[in-house]
Design a protein around this nucleic acid. Structure first.
Length: 361
DNA sequence: AAATCGGGGGA
DNA sequence: TCCCCAGATTT
C-alpha cells in the first residue's frame, strides 16, 4: 500500500534524477574554503587530498586545519614525507590521536615513493591496497583528487542517506544498504565536487541534532523530513559502557648539566599509543593500584583523568627528584625538550600536572 | 560482527 | 555526561 504522505505530496517531490544537480548547485553557492581544498577550476594535488583525508578520519575539521598546514610546510611532497623518520612523523602527529594513522601514513608514503614512482594510484582498488586507506578514503581520493566517479560514505553521508530513506535498520548493520542508496545517486560528472558536497551537506545542514531542513536542497526528497522524525536517524546499535582502569605513574627526575631530565620509555609499536613516549607506570588495571614500593616517593595532589574510546583511565602521580630509576627501563629526556618528542596528550597531562605543581610551591 | 584505537568540542 | 567526528585494522 502506498505511503499516504508520499501520495499527498508527490507533486512536490524531487525526482531522484535531479538530486545530484540540486546538490551541486547548492555546493557552488556554499562551498567552504578549507586548507586542503582546491579552488574552483584548480587541479587537486593527490598528496594534499590523501594527507587531509587521513587526518580527518574520526577527527574534526577544526582540529585538522592547523595540523594539516604544519605537515605541508614540513613535508611538501610525498617523497619528503617518505624520507622523514617515523619518530619525526609521530612527533608531528602527537596529540592527534589514533597513532596507527601516523605509522600507516609513513608506511604509505614510503610505498608510493619507492614502489609507485612517487605517484598515487587513481583507482579505488589500488588505493585500498595501501596502508591506512580503506573504503572511505580510497573513494574520497578517487573522487576528489582524480575527479572520477566513486561513492564516499562517511558519518555525514550515513546520516543524510538514513534520513532520506528513513532507514530503520541500525548502524553498523545498515552500512551495505546505505552504500547502495548512495551509489545509486552518485553522478559521474563533477565527482570530486559531489563527494565533498554530500559531506558538507551532512556537516552543515543535515546535522545530528536540529538539522536545518529549511535550507536543505534535498528537503523535498527526504522521507524523514516529510514525517518529521529526522533526529531519530541514523538508528544506531546500543553502546557498551566504558570500564575504568587505574594505575600509578612515576615522574623520576635528575639534575643534569643542561638542566632537569626525566625518565621515559617508548611504548611498543603495536597497540594503544603505539610508538609514543610515556612515563613509566604500573599496569593499567581495573583493580585499585598500590602505590610504588620503596622510599623516596612523593605523591602529587590531583589525579589524571583521561578517557579513551573503550576505557577511562585514572592515574595517581608519584615523583622523586633523586634520579633513582628503580630498575625501570627507559632513558633520560630533558624536561625542556618535552615539546619536541612524540608525547601523547595523556602524557602531556602528566607533565603539565607535575610542572604546575612545582610552580605553585 | 565485534573490538581496538585518541582526543576534542558541542549540548 | 553523552555523542559525534571526511574510519581502518585486527580479532
Amino acid at each position: 500500500m502506498a505511503n499516504p504522505l508520499y501520495t499527498q505530496n508527490r507533486m512536490n517531490l524531487m525526482k531522484p534524477a535531479e538530486m545530484p544537480t540540486q546538490l551541486l548547485d547548492w555546493y557552488d553557492q556554499h562551498r567552504r574554503v578549507l586548507p586542503w581544498r582546491a579552488l574552483p577550476g584548480e587541479e587537486a594535488d593527490p598528496y594534499r587530498v590523501w594527507l587531509s583525508e587521513i587526518m580527518l578520519q574520526q577527527t574534526t575539521v577544526a582540529t585538522v586545519k592547523n595540523r594539516f598546514e604544519t605537515f605541508m610546510r614540513r613535508w611538501p611532497t610525498v617523497s619528503d614525507l617518505a624520507a622523514a623518520s617515523l619518530d619525526d612523523v609521530l612527533t608531528e602527529w602527537a596529540g592527534l590521536g589514533y597513532y596507527a594513522r601516523a605509522r600507516n601514513l609513513h608506511k604509505c608514503a614510503i610505498a608510493i615513493s619507492n614502489e609507485l614512482g612517487g605517484r598515487f594510484p587513481n583507482s579505488t582498488e589500488a588505493l585500498k591496497d595501501l596502508p591506512g586507506i580503506g573504503d572511505y578514503t580510497s573513494a574520497a581520493i578517487t573522487a576528489i583528487a582524480f575527479d572520477q566517479r566513486a561513492t564516499v560514505v562517511d558519518g555525514n553521508v550515513e546520516r543524510v542517506i538514513a534520513r532520506l530513506h528513513r532507514i530503520q535498520e541500525p548502524l553498523p548493520r545498515s552500512k551495505k544498504n546505505i552504500k547502495k542508496f548512495a551509489a545509486a545517486m552518485t553522478p559521474a560528472r563533477r565527482a570530486g565536487d559531489y563527494a565533498q558536497a554530500v559531506m558538507d551537506l551532512g556537516a552543515t545542514i543535515c546535522t545530528p541534532r536540529k538539522p536545518m531542513c529549511g535550507n536543505c536542497p534535498w528537503s523535498n526528497a527526504c522521507e524523514a523530513r516529510s514525517v518529521g522524525d529526522q533526529e531519530l536517524y541514523p538508528v544506531k546499535a546500543p553502546k557498551k559502557k566504558r570500564p575504568t582502569r587505574r594505575a600509578s605513574i612515576y615522574w623520576i627526575e635528575r639534575q643534569a648539566d643542561e638542566g632537569a631530565e626525566v625518565w621515559m620509555r617508548r611504548r611498543p609499536e603495536k597497540g594503544l599509543l603505539g610508538g609514543m613516549m610515556e612515563f613509566p607506570s604500573s599496569e593499567w588495571l581495573e583493580a585499585t593500584p598500590e602505590g610504588p614500593s620503596g622510599d623516596g616517593w612523593q605523591p602529587l595532589n590531583g589525579q589524571i583523568i583521561h578517557v579513551f574510546t573503550h576505557f577511562r583511565l585514572e592515574l595517581d602521580v608519584f615523583q622523586r627528584t633523586d634520579g633513582v630509576t628503580a630498575g625501570l627501563d627507559g632513558k633520560w629526556v630533558a624536561v625542556r625538550r618535552l615539546g619536541d618528542i612524540a608525547l601523547p596528550t595523556l602524557m602531556k597531562k602528566v607533565s603539565d600536572l607535575v610542572l604546575q605543581d612545582r610552580q605553585s610551591r
